[in-house]
């Protein structure tokens, strides 16, 4: 079994889609540790970055056992084209909290729906792992939604910053629904069809946005649009991947 066997496996691609989202989301957000707007929220956001990376690890461990690999090899040693994350995540936030928060909230809301579905799949190891992630993912969605509402309804300044962040990210957010592999039937690509999961995600987001006094134009891009999930990544993704793997690549070693 090799990395390439894993990349050819349709279910593995779906798992990787969520795991890679979590890896890059945790990676991006963890750069804020020590620099967030409020010390208490710095700590909270850092806990959630750790969760995101831990959840990625839980899913990589499943794949590692299935394909006789190691979780670190899956996380650090693939070619850029084999990462299944959406490029929404690696859009630089330039330490703008509104961008970082909105991005995390968009992704977390989708991941919550994704792990719900993976928990029902006919694979005991995978479904057990995903069942454990469900309540933890719910914590994230709740925490992030409350912050969307708090900042959307805080001051005129915070509302306009949040709205600007949504406007910046909304078109890329749709690309989270790109099927992760050419070989996957779009009906199966999120275990239940991308249309269905998109509608659920949109409804959930819009409910929070309404409470926050914010709005977004959330649309499902045509299936023909190719992006990160099928390996055609933006430069900001490859830049982040280079950073993620810098130390490991500089000195190949049996252990770090």
């Amino acid at each position: 079994m090799t990395m390439q066997d894993m990349m050819k496996d349709p279910l593995a691609n779906i798992v990787l889609m969520h795991a890679d989202d979590k890896l890059m989301l945790g990676h991006m957000q963890s750069d804020w540790t020590g620099l967030a707007p409020i010390l208490e929220e710095d700590i909270a956001a850092s806990s959630m970055s750790q969760d995101d990376l831990s959840h990625a690890l839980v899913l990589y461990d499943h794949l590692a056992a299935r394909f006789d690999l190691t979780a670190d090899a899956i996380a650090f040693e693939r070619d850029a084209a084999d990462y299944r994350c959406c490029d929404l995540i690696t859009i630089p936030d330039e330490f703008d909290w509104a961008i970082a928060l909105t991005k995390r909230w968009f992704v977390a809301t989708l991941t919550a729906l994704g792990v719900d579905r993976l928990a029902t799949i006919d694979d005991e190891d995978l479904s057990t792992r995903c069942k454990r992630l469900i309540p933890e993912q719910a914590i994230h969605v709740r925490h992030l939604s409350e912050w969307m509402i708090r900042l959307g309804s805080g001051t005129e300044e915070s509302r306009s910053r949040m709205q600007a962040a949504i406007n910046t990210l909304e078109s890329d957010a749709g690309m989270m629904f790109e099927p992760p592999d050419h070989s996957i039937d779009p009906v199966d690509s999120f275990c239940c069809g991308r249309e269905g999961i998109f509608q659920e995600w949109k409804t959930s987001c819009e409910d929070t946005l309404q409470r926050a006094g914010l709005s977004a134009n959330l649309a499902l891009p045509p299936e023909s649009m190719i992006g990160g999930r099928r390996g055609t990544h933006a430069t900001h993704f490859t830049d982040q991947l280079a950073e993620l793997t810098e130390v490991r690549r500089a000195e190949p070693a049996p252990a770090w």
Partner: peptide, 11 residues
């Protein structure tokens, strides 16, 4: 209190 408990949970 809502934010206090939210912060406390994650720390």
């Amino acid at each position: 209190v809502a934010l206090a408990l939210q912060f406390a949970r994650e720390h």
